[in-house]
Amino acid sequence: MKILSLICRTRDLRKQLEQSRTKLYRVAFSWCHNSALADDLVQETLSKALKNVGQLRDPELLNSWLFRILNNCWHDHFRQHREMDDIDEIEDFRYANTDTPEDAHAQNQIVDRVRAAISQLPFGQRQVLTLVDLEEFSYAEVASILGVPAGTVMSRLCRARRSLKELLQELSPTRQTQQITPLRRVK
C-alpha cells in the first residue's frame, strides 16, 4: 500500500509540475523580458524539480519551492555569464525607445508601457513585485523564495510600486506629447 501511495503521490506531483509551467514562465518572462531565456529558465527549473522531487516534504509548499528553484536557476544563469557582475544591478534592455513609428505605437499600449516600466526597475524590486502581484504570494512566502527578510520584501515592494508609478507617468504618451517643443518659424 505504501508503494502504491508513493507512486500516486509522484504521479500527482509530476502533473502539478506540468501545470506550474505557465505560472513559472509568466514570472520568468516578467524578470527577463526575453521569451527564449524565460523558456530555458523554466525548463531548467522543472528539470531540477523533477530530479529533486523527493526532497519536497510537504506537497503544499510545491509552489514556493518551484519559485525558489527558478530564482536559483536565474542566479546560476547570470553567474555563468560573468559580463553581468551584480545581479541586483542588472538593468535589462529598455523598451523606452521612441525612435521608430512602431516603437511609438507600442508605447501607446498599456501592456508594453507597464512591461517597459517593470524592466527598468532594479532586479530585486522587480522580483518582489512580480511574485506578489502575479502569483499572489504572501510576503512571508516571497521572503522564503528569495531568501531575504520579510522587511526587505516590504520595503522593496514599496519602492517598486513608487518607481513604477513614476515610470508609468514618464512613459505616458500624453506626457511625451507635452514634452515635444513645437517648431516655430522665426523670421
Partner: peptide, 22 residues
Amino acid sequence: KVQHAYLHPPQPAHTQKKGWLS
C-alpha cells in the same frame, strides 16, 4: 496593471502545445 501586462506573455517560438512532461 502589472497583472494585466503579463496575462499573456509571448510564447517562445519553439514551444509546443504539449508539455515535456505530458
